[in-house]
Simulated assay, not measured.
Amino acid sequence: MNKKAFTLLEIIIVLGILGIFLGAGTFFSAGFISREYLRTDTENLIFVLREARSRAQSGYENDSWSIKFLLSEGKYVLFKGNDYETREIAFDREYFLNKTLSFKQIVFDGGDDIMTFFKNDGYSKENGEIILQNVKGASESVFVNYFGIISLDQSNPAYTGEIPIIPDDTLEKQTYNVFVPVLQDTYIDKGDEDVSFGSENNIWVQSRFVLWHKRGLLRFDLTAIPNDAQIVSAKLKLYVVDKKGSSRSYGIYKIIQNPDRDWIENEATWYRYKIGQLWTGGGGDYVETLSNTFNVSAFDGTPFSVQIDLTSDIGDLIKTPLDNYGWLIKDMEEAATFQYYVQFASKEHSQTGYRPSLNIVYEY
């Protein structure tokens, strides 16, 4: 039987064809990845622009909010106010483009590289276009007009000014999933009524007779959530790091907004919410209607988390973020004969993963 082997020429041809296919696959794969980076970073830019506008509209920190574009560094900075040179750096948030992207061009009416949204109305300083470009030459433009309207499409009726309404209602809504770190936390103790515990690693909540109550206080910064967003869910996550007693129920209440109760964690005690300012009564001022209740099971020495649904509260608070003074947590049966307590990890806890966080899912 004759067996015919491949000739050298045939092998070279086959290898050449394979090389062409592999090269084409690599080319198209690289192109796809590059386009995805462009799409993702464009969405991120829109999100940050909206955040700046939302902060300005809500009057956060009683100031306008701006974004500085540093083209040569491939980054942009969200900052408080409208003057980058004299800004308060503590409020800065920096964002970097993917290394495969760059700012092709920034075109603002005033020829500047700063987009400012004015306090209260959220209008912008000028019309502008920000163009992002990837290594393949593809580009995306984001437009901002004097109304503060942000769009990918200049023909959008809201953008052109034909419908002078908040633009985001006319755009296709997107879903965002964010984790908000705790801004302040502490606990107040009836047994140590003049002591502040804002620097403690744990937040105590305790019941025992009428003289040994402890209540927790928490507050989160909600100003980054647009005040016209649709809240899908909001869950507070706390880690139990110690507990005495069997399973118990706890209640969480909104701290009252009127009159102001802008408590300070390192000054709040059982009778005052900050130095020189007293609670109406001892133990904090809170809305009598429960925001929610939750159970904490017995503790076996291993930290575990509990989640509390605060969707309704967050939906209300984002509309007036400057009136947000957080929540108070207390035992549902404080007048217990025996001592029962739970300790939640605070924002000072050494294990960062145990610190309080608020997971908010919203559409905007």
Results as ranks from 00 to 15, higher is better:
Ile225Leu: 05
Thr160Ser: 15
Ser346Asp: 01
Trp212Asn: 14
Lys235Cys: 02
Lys75Ser: 08
Phe32Lys: 05
Tyr271His: 10
Leu317Val: 06
Val14Arg: 04
Ile46Met: 13
Asp185Arg: 05
Leu70Met: 09
Ala90Asn: 06
Glu51Asn: 08
Ile33Tyr: 11
Val48Ala: 04
Ile166Lys: 15
Lys4His: 10
Thr293Ser: 12
Thr186Phe: 07
Gly353Ser: 10
Tyr123Asn: 12
Ile163Glu: 09
Leu97Pro: 01
Asp300Val: 08
Thr352Lys: 09
Asp189Arg: 09
Ala229Thr: 01
Asp189Thr: 08
Ser64Asp: 09
Gly128Trp: 01
Lys347Ala: 12
Leu171Thr: 05
Lys254Val: 05
Phe96Arg: 12
Tyr37Thr: 10
Val241His: 03
Asp285Gly: 00
Trp65Arg: 01
Asp168Gly: 10
Tyr60Ala: 12
Gly284Asn: 03
Gly19Glu: 06
Met115Ile: 15
Thr40Val: 14
Ser291Arg: 09
Leu317Arg: 14
Ser247Pro: 00
Thr311Pro: 06
Phe304Thr: 02
Glu51Cys: 02
Leu183Asn: 11
Asn62Tyr: 08
Val296Met: 06
Asn98Glu: 11
Leu278Pro: 10
Gly276Arg: 01
Gly110Tyr: 14
Phe338Leu: 15
Ala234Met: 01
Phe209Tyr: 10
Val135Arg: 14
Tyr187Thr: 00
Ser58His: 03
Thr160His: 04
Leu358Gly: 00
Gln133Tyr: 07
Thr223His: 12
Leu322Ile: 09
Leu70Arg: 06
Ile329Thr: 09
Glu126Thr: 08
Thr269Gln: 06
